[in-house]
Simulated assay, not measured.
Amino acid sequence: METNRQKIAALMAGVALVGLVGATPAQAEGSRETYITQWAPGKESGRWTDNNNDSAWTGVYFQGCSTDSSLGYNRTGLQLWKNQDFRPDINKGYRVNYCGWVDWNDPDDAGTYYFRLDSLLNGGYLWVDYVKIGW
Results as ranks from 00 to 15, higher is better:
22 G>I: 02
23 A>I: 08
23 A>W: 07
24 T>N: 10
26 A>M: 02
26 A>I: 00
29 E>F: 02
32 R>C: 07
33 E>K: 11
33 E>R: 11
35 Y>F: 15
35 Y>D: 08
36 I>H: 03
38 Q>K: 15
38 Q>V: 13
39 W>C: 09
40 A>Y: 09
41 P>T: 11
42 G>Y: 07
42 G>I: 08
42 G>F: 09
43 K>E: 13
43 K>N: 14
44 E>Q: 12
46 G>S: 14
46 G>M: 10
47 R>Q: 15
49 T>G: 05
50 D>H: 14
50 D>V: 03
51 N>K: 12
52 N>I: 03
53 N>Y: 12
53 N>R: 10
54 D>L: 07
54 D>F: 10
55 S>H: 07
55 S>N: 11
59 G>Q: 09
59 G>I: 05
60 V>W: 08
61 Y>C: 02
62 F>G: 08
64 G>W: 11
66 S>I: 01
67 T>D: 09
67 T>R: 11
68 D>S: 08
68 D>W: 03
71 L>R: 08
72 G>L: 01
73 Y>T: 06
75 R>Q: 15
75 R>D: 06
75 R>E: 12
76 T>M: 04
76 T>A: 15
78 L>Q: 04
80 L>R: 02
82 K>S: 08
84 Q>F: 09
84 Q>A: 05
84 Q>P: 00
85 D>I: 09
85 D>H: 02
86 F>A: 14
86 F>E: 11
87 R>G: 05
87 R>H: 14
88 P>M: 04
88 P>R: 14
89 D>T: 03
90 I>D: 09
92 K>T: 00
92 K>V: 03
93 G>P: 01
95 R>C: 01
95 R>K: 15
96 V>R: 02
97 N>Q: 06
98 Y>R: 11
98 Y>L: 05
99 C>Q: 01
100 G>W: 02
104 W>N: 04
106 D>R: 03
109 D>E: 15
109 D>H: 01
111 G>H: 07
111 G>V: 11
111 G>R: 11
111 G>S: 12
112 T>G: 00
113 Y>F: 14
116 R>D: 01
116 R>C: 05
117 L>N: 13
118 D>C: 00
118 D>M: 13
118 D>R: 11
118 D>Y: 13
121 L>F: 11
123 G>S: 13
